[in-house]
């Protein structure tokens, strides 16, 4: 399955090379093997995003990374030997056989986000199985970071579980939530308890649209309680990429304009590719 990248704000894609053409210029690959999805980004020396791919990580991280690399190079019209350096990140970073180095996803998200927004900021990354709140100074150095604790509340896994319980395709949740007129509030920390709460709301006759918006609100609450927000705030990650309503809701709750990179789901992969470039210098 290929994950389609949704349209997002600030979208400034690099001009891709013509299909079938090949570059002899050095390219830099970033591979982010997340618990849910594997992402690859190919940058050229001018830091332009020439190719990218997203696939379900599945059970063979090595193979999935390989498939994503091929797809990304194909999109870039490049050959494997054009890749001068590669850095891998994410839970499966050590399963990427072709990478030259590994970095943590915290470092790569910070690096990728700072590339798009070179300023002091708080990054909120909502991933498939973990959330991160990372604070950067105006030089892009990490001041502090926090990951969600043991449970998956507030992550993509929570939304996946709820979409299954409600029998709603994951990709329809964003549009359903937008139709909500009276959001249902869910109180529990725990995914299992939230599931029970949702059943109770259904029993009470609440509208599915209102429940779905409540699920998104629950995700936001879990994330915002992880740390304070300082300086500008940016949001990244697959959950943000596929559910832009989350960004709008955070803007409303916090009364802040939220920054979102061009491909929120690729932020870690882009950061990894930037590290690959720096390592080669």
């Amino acid at each position: 399955m290929t994950d389609k990248q949704p349209e997002t704000r600030n979208l400034k894609p690099a001009t891709p090379l013509k299909s079938g053409s090949s570059t002899r210029n050095p390219l830099f690959a970033g591979v982010d093997v997340g618990a849910s999805r594997t992402k690859v980004a190919i940058l050229d020396a001018e830091k332009r995003l020439l190719g990218h791919a997203v696939r379900k990580s599945g059970i063979d991280f090595t193979e999935t990374a390989e498939i994503c690399l091929k797809a990304s190079l194909n999109m870039a019209g490049a050959l494997r030997e054009d890749v001068a350096s590669c850095v891998s990140t994410g839970y499966g970073r050590k399963n990427v056989l072709f990478s030259d180095e590994t970095k943590t996803e915290i470092g790569c998200h910070a690096r990728g986000c700072y590339h798009y927004f070179p300023m002091a900021m708080t990054i909120i990354d909502i991933g498939g199985q973990d959330n991160k709140v990372i604070k950067l100074d105006n030089q892009g150095r990490r001041l502090n970071f926090k990951m969600n604790r043991k449970c998956a509340a507030g992550t993509g896994a929570f939304l996946e579980e709820m979409s299954m319980r409600l029998g709603i395709p994951l990709e329809e949740m964003d549009s359903l939530a937008r139709k909500s007129e009276e959001m249902v509030e869910l109180g529990s920390y725990c995914t299992v308890f939230s599931g029970t709460e949702v059943l109770e709301k259904i029993r009470q006759g609440k509208k599915v649209t209102d429940i779905v918006k409540g699920l998104f609100f629950s995700v936001i609450k879990r994330v915002l309680e992880m740390d304070s927000l300082t300086d500008r705030v940016a949001m990244t990650g697959g959950v943000v990429a596929h559910n832009p309503i989350l960004v709008e809701m955070v803007e409303e709750i916090t009364a802040r304009d939220i920054l979102v990179p061009e491909y929120p789901q690729l932020t870690g992969a882009v950061g990894a590719a930037l590290f690959a470039m720096e390592d080669k210098k």
Binding site: Y91, T104, E105, I106, G107, D130, F145
Partner: peptide
Amino acid sequence: EEQAKTNIEAFIEQ
């Protein structure tokens, strides 16, 4: 363990 290891590695990067 995986989460702890990643956190420690990221902390040292920091």
